[in-house]
């Protein structure tokens, strides 16, 4: 059994095999592996006795259920109205510069993925972003450099 097999088995035991367990199971996989590999989706399909197409169809609907490999740190910069007004574009440029990737891409070493997302409910403290489950507010290019610098040091 691979690590993924074991994870899926554990999650299905925890949540059950009913269709309504699908999202919790997929979320559990993403939490550990940061994305849903083909192997994981096939495995879930088998365990829940639904087609792999159903699993993929559902997963692909949701922006927090990635079906492509993502970095250890997933950066989601808010691009909705208030953050846009407060200078989100400059932040994105700064991060693209530091990470040497464009929005939507993952660094070669799979450390960072840079994504844009819609309003994350921190508009009064914008511009804002999430890195994995943590939030960062009132961002400036200087602040962003520090935050990324810390994470880069932590992982190298």
């Amino acid at each position: 059994m691979t690590k993924t097999n074991e994870l899926v088995k554990k999650l299905v035991e925890e949540h059950g095999v009913a269709r309504e367990s699908l999202l919790p199971v997929l979320q559990g996989i993403v939490k550990e592996e940061r994305y849903l590999s083909k192997e994981a989706m096939r495995d879930v399909a088998e365990q829940l006795d639904i087609s792999a197409a159903e699993v993929y169809g559902t997963a692909s609907f949701f922006s927090f259920l990635d079906t492509e490999e993502k970095g250890k740190y997933i950066i989601r910069v808010c691009k909705s109205i208030t953050c846009d007004m407060k200078g989100k574009c400059e932040l994105v440029r700064t991060m693209e510069d530091i990470l040497k990737i464009k929005v939507g891409q993952t660094t070669v070493g799979k450390r960072f993925s840079l994504l844009e997302t819609n309003c994350i409910g921190l508009c009064d403290q914008g511009p804002a972003m999430l890195i994995n489950d943590d939030y960062y507010t009132k961002l400036t290019p200087v602040k962003v450099r520090e935050i990324l610098g810390d994470l880069i040091r932590k992982t190298s």
């Binding site: 009913a18 269709r19 309504e20 999202l23 949701f62 922006s63």
Partner: peptide, 18 residues
């Protein structure tokens, strides 16, 4: 799991049903 439309009550229920 990240979808604005899931705030709509029937979409919300659909997503809860997997």
């Amino acid at each position: 799991a990240g979808a604005y439309v899931c705030g709509e009550e029937t979409a919300l229920i659909e997503s809860m049903e997997g």
